[in-house]
C-alpha cells in the first residue's frame, strides 16, 4: 500500500532539512509518495485598499509562481532525481490548518515539518505555526530540528 507523507516547506534551511528527513523516511518505507507543500500565509480577514483588491488576483498568481519556481519545484526535482515519487503544492492560508487539511484529504500517514522559523513578538502572541500544528494535527507530526 502506498504511504503518503506531507512535508511542509518554508523556503529556509530548516525546511529543506524536513524534506531530507522525509526522503530518508520514504526510502525506508519503500512504496511512498512525498507531498511537498508550501503555504503562503494569508488570511481572508485582513484590511486592504481598493487598489490592492483590484490587483489581488494578479498578485496571487505571482505568489504561487514565485513559490513554485523558487521553493517547490527545486525540492520536487531533487527528490525525483533521487528516485522518489513526489509532487508539490502551493496554497494560500494558515500553515497549520492547511498542512493538516491536506494530510487528511490525501490520507497521509504523517506530516513532517521543520522547527519554527518565526521569531519575536508574533510567535509570542499567536504561537508558532509548528506549535499550532502539533497541538491540533489529526495525523502524527514529526518536527525536524
Amino acid at each position: 500500500m502506498l504511504t503518503k507523507i506531507v512535508v511542509g516547506l518554508d523556503g529556509s534551511g530548516s525546511g529543506s532539512r524536513a524534506v531530507d528527513y522525509a526522503r530518508k523516511l520514504g526510502s525506508l518505507i519503500g512504496e511512498c509518495e512525498l507531498i511537498l507543500v508550501y503555504v503562503v500565509e494569508w488570511s481572508p480577514f485582513t484590511f486592504q485598499t481598493p487598489e490592492e483588491n483590484a490587483e489581488r488576483h494578479k498578485r496571487r498568481e505571482e505568489e504561487i509562481k514565485m513559490a513554485m519556481d523558487r521553493v517547490v519545484t527545486p525540492a520536487v526535482n531533487a527528490a525525483k532525481e533521487a528516485g522518489h515519487t513526489v509532487r508539490g503544492i502551493v496554497r494560500h492560508g494558515d500553515v497549520a490548518d492547511l498542512l493538516d487539511d491536506i494530510a487528511v484529504k490525501e490520507g497521509a500517514s504523517q506530516i513532517v515539518v521543520a522547527r519554527t522559523s518565526e521569531s519575536g513578538i508574533t510567535q509570542r502572541i499567536f504561537g508558532s505555526s509548528t506549535a499550532n500544528l502539533v497541538m491540533h494535527a489529526s495525523v502524527p507530526v514529526t518536527v525536524v530540528g
Binding site: 481572508p44 485582513t46 486592504q48 485598499t49 481598493p50 489581488r56 492560508g93 487539511d101
Partner: peptide
Amino acid sequence: KGDYSDPNDAGEVSHFQALATALSG
C-alpha cells in the same frame, strides 16, 4: 464568515475584505 468560500480560492479577495474595503470608503 467564509462559510461558502471554496478553500481552493484562498488568496483571492475574500467577501470580508471587499466589505471592509467598501466600508472604509
